[in-house]
Amino acid sequence: MSELDSLTCRRIVMLSPLRFVRAFDGSLEQLSPIRDFVGETVRLLGGNEDDAFAAELATDEAATNVFHHAFENLRGRITLTLWRQENKLVIQMHYYGKSFDPSLIPEPDLKLPLAERPIGGMGMYIMRQLMDEVRFEFDAVNGNVLTMRRILNLSERYGFMELSVERPAPDAAVVHISGSVDGSNYKQLISQAETLHAEGVNRIVLEVSGCEYMSSSGLVALNAITKLLRGERMPDTEDGWAVLKTLDDARVGQSKAQLALVNPTPRVDRVLDLAGLKNLVPIYPDTKAALAAMA
């Protein structure tokens, strides 16, 4: 990882709790300033050019619809709030105006021949294509809120990982991992486990739904943490892949698992499968099931 990347990474982590808020008049003249604000903010929050473009276009489409349909002939205002929630970009649009039922907006049939193509209906379709989530909440008193989320592929570009820890019981911890676990940060994961172990934790659930990528270093960390929780000597993680072979296979399945994974993405799941780690570290659909199985 280059110096610039780690600086960018730090900037993103620092900025992550910030919310960028700006209000705009409900007129079509504001579409271009809205796009500029959204694009600039998404780049600040760690998005790349694809993310900035997707956010600009989706917000443009959403604002155009609100100006045309929700405000009708009245001059309304929209307030845009953007922030990053772990690896997700969140764009929220707040406004007062007419509500509608999003489920009644038909999806355009892109295969229809030209003459039968309806004009319009494309804005909502584009929003849904560009965003991972598009949700409307209508409230005549407090205003309507449109929330759009897009998963930013931060880890591949910046190689960073975020850990957050919950302690559901004195001897148990749930560690949420988002981003990527790779050679630059796997030791951070191990030392987090060591800290918890020193505090009396002997059951650790790694909740990895937000982990987009796990390299072999991540697997080494899983191995080291398994040994730590079993009270065995920690392997020298500098040995890399060789460490994966050091677990006493005879013990697998005999002792109660003290490390479990919850909700891996298909990509991480494949890595675990390939490395044969699924026999070693059980996988559960949710943290509750994982904690119960290890109790």
């Binding site: 579409l31 796009r35 600009e56 155009t64 030209l114 003459a115 004009i119 494309m122």
Partner: peptide, 19 residues
């Protein structure tokens, strides 16, 4: 550099009419 669906709508209308 940029078009939203508003631009597409104009293109679609006019390609129909031109044809």
């Amino acid at each position: 550099e940029y078009t939203s669906s508003a631009g597409l709508r104009v293109l679609l209308n006019n390609v129909k009419d031109a044809r």
